[in-house]
Amino acid sequence: MVSNAARPRRHDAATADERIIWPAAFGQRFLVTVDVEEEFDWTAPLDRRHRSTKAMRAFGPAHRRFAEAGVGLNCMVDYPVAVDPVAVGILSECLGDGRSEIGAQLHSWVTPPYQEVVDPFTSHAGNLPIALEAAKLDMLTDAIDASFGIRPRIFRSGRYGLGPSSLSLLASRGYRIDSSMRALHDYHAVGGMNFSAIDAHGFRREGMVELPLTSVYTGLLRRRGAGLYRRAGRWPHGRGVLARAGLLSRIPLTPEGVDIRDALAGIDQALADGVRLLTFSFHSPTLEPGHTPYVRDARDRARFDRWWDAVFDRLAKHGVAATTIDEVLAAAG
């Protein structure tokens, strides 16, 4: 059994030596990543029995919309999806666009071996004993290889659960890129990791290229971002008050819970901050109404599509082009 006695990890800010110096020819680019996973009730305790992947039937049509816009999807596939032949067939067709990529996402609670009690702490794979984290990573990687004939190069730890040994485990297994850090976010209150010191710029650490999920602070007090945002969280509705007053907002680049006006402001700010590679994300069950809090009905689903249309239009106006994992690795050196 695994206890929850260990202390969650705080990830240190990148040093100057760790920063990736992107070549001028790379310009400013963007990636879209998708957490491709089973459906479950986001408001209920995690349960290993929840392994359905029926929402994958919405993935093919959604992918076609992205492909028509010239945007590949970096599919972070977890274990229940990797062992479902129907889901594998849908994703394999998506690879025909020549820009999409199959990566890996470790949902520890539905990935064997099952040696831990499922709770909020152990759901962050980086909190597990290193041998158990490694065994689950191997099971996931081998399942993807068996289903797709591909050794994944890019990884995400489910629930952003990147622990003290995770990057070295990934590097030793041939992974090249990690995207488990959500810039400016702190999950220690739910047993997870603290990324409040991580900004949106790519860097190298322990043999891996780290591409944090892009988040930025906007507003008149953005220079005081991390400290003020943390303190505001202690006041009733403090963060909402600051956001409505135009003083401070934290904006992650995702259509899930972020309205289009904020997303466009976040894009503008990230580019003004000199972020060379913007990393967007969403979850595959969001593509079918009723599985996540973000898309409950057809109206929400239409709003999801309009969000991406507006984002792609804003990126094009800035001259920011979609990129691929091959291009990112070549540019990172």
Rank of each mutant, 00 (worst) to 15 (best):
R182D: 10
L137C: 06
G240H: 03
L167M: 12
S196H: 13
S147M: 05
A226H: 09
L162Q: 13
P252M: 11
R239A: 10
R234S: 14
I130S: 13
L211H: 03
G163E: 03
G225E: 02
R223H: 13
G240M: 00
D142T: 12
S165C: 15
A197L: 14
Y229V: 01
A171D: 09
L137T: 04
R204K: 13
V209R: 01
N127V: 08
I144L: 03
D199R: 01
Y217E: 03
P120C: 12
N194M: 04
V209A: 09
P212G: 07
F121L: 06
L128G: 03
E210I: 15
F195P: 03
I251K: 01
G219H: 08
A146P: 00
L169E: 12
R205P: 13
A171P: 05
A146V: 00
P129Q: 07
I198M: 06
V216F: 07
R222Y: 11
A189E: 11
H124M: 11
P236R: 14
G161D: 03
G233M: 04
A171Y: 03
G227K: 08
P152F: 02
R230W: 10
N194F: 04
F195K: 01
H185K: 11
L221Q: 08
S147L: 04
A125E: 02
R205Y: 10
I251T: 08
G238E: 02
I130P: 07
R222C: 13
P129W: 05
